[in-house]
């Protein structure tokens, strides 16, 4: 069985192509202002990557905040379900997963089959989503991909008072004016964000092997801070973590098609 999973997110639209439980193609396209176009572009590129034609797909699962724009999907998959299915697929034995998206963070507790047992969501506030770190990278005038590694070089933990992304921007500017080293500011940013994500995860219970997906998982500064906040030695990050939910949608589509 060949299925596609499409995750139309606030920032990027990701597509995964799976054949009998193995990923054979993937592609991402910026969502921009036209979700339908983004979905088309992402799916076309993923099919190209898998060297397949559209007709060879048995089913298409659609998920994410823009799921209603995925006209190609014959199966709509709830985003919580996608995350659970994906986390269980990548890490046997894991029971807790968090998907940190650009505008929304979801924490999910699931059983060994990837069925959802519990979940908590943070949305409609940038403080608890990837948008927070992005806004801070602009305030700090440091590239997003450099911000995390920079935080790792800091040995000093300074608290951030502002919780709101807008107020935190001003606080960061204030810290720059006070000649606080950028690395320490960067750590403070990641610590603050990780504290909020950790509190969301704690609401569903922290089991060993917490799976973290979403683009923010690439950020080593965030991951280190999250481990400190959760008091764990490691977290599980799938290869290409931004495709987490898309993978889950492809898996659920295959289960439905069976």
């Amino acid at each position: 069985m060949i299925t596609a999973g499409i995750d139309c997110g606030a920032k990027n639209t990701k597509t995964i192509i799976m054949k009998d439980g193995t990923i054979i193609g993937r592609a991402s396209a910026p969502t921009g202002f036209d979700q339908r176009e983004a979905v088309k572009a992402s799916l076309t590129a993923a099919l190209e990557d898998a060297k397949l034609d559209r007709e060879q797909l048995d089913h298409i699962g659609g998920t994410g905040s823009g799921a209603m724009s995925i006209e190609e999907a014959d199966i709509k998959v709830n985003d919580i379900k996608s995350i659970a299915a994906s986390a269980a697929y990548f890490f046997r034995g894991a029971h807790t997963a968090a998907d940190v998206g650009a505008e929304k963070t979801r924490a999910v507790k699931f059983d060994e089959n990837g069925s959802v047992e519990d979940f908590a969501v943070n949305e409609k506030c940038a403080a608890g989503a990837g948008a927070f770190i992005e806004a801070m990278s602009r305030a700090l005038e440091t590239k997003l991909e450099e911000l995390g590694p920079l935080a790792l070089t800091s040995e000093k933990s300074i608290p951030m008072n502002a919780q709101c992304a807008i107020f935190a921007e001003s606080e960061v500017v204030g810290l720059i004016h006070a000649r606080t080293p950028k690395k320490d500011i960067s750590r403070a940013i990641h610590d603050a964000m990780a504290g909020r994500i950790a509190s969301l995860i704690r609401r569903i219970g922290v089991n060993p092997d917490v799976v973290i997906m979403g683009g923010v998982a690439y950020n080593p500064g965030f991951i280190e801070a999250l481990k400190r906040e959760l008091h764990v030695d490691r977290v599980c990050i799938p290869e290409k973590p931004e495709f987490g939910a898309a993978t889950g949608a492809a898996i659920v589509a295959a289960q439905h098609g069976r």
Binding site: F33, K124, C125, A126, A131, A135, C164, I166
Partner: peptide
């Protein structure tokens, strides 16, 4: 529609577009 100023900003950019 967004309360959050960060999201309201993107919404406004979208409206202008």
């Amino acid at each position: 529609s967004s309360t959050c100023v960060v999201y309201a900003k993107s919404e406004a950019t979208d409206l202008l577009r």
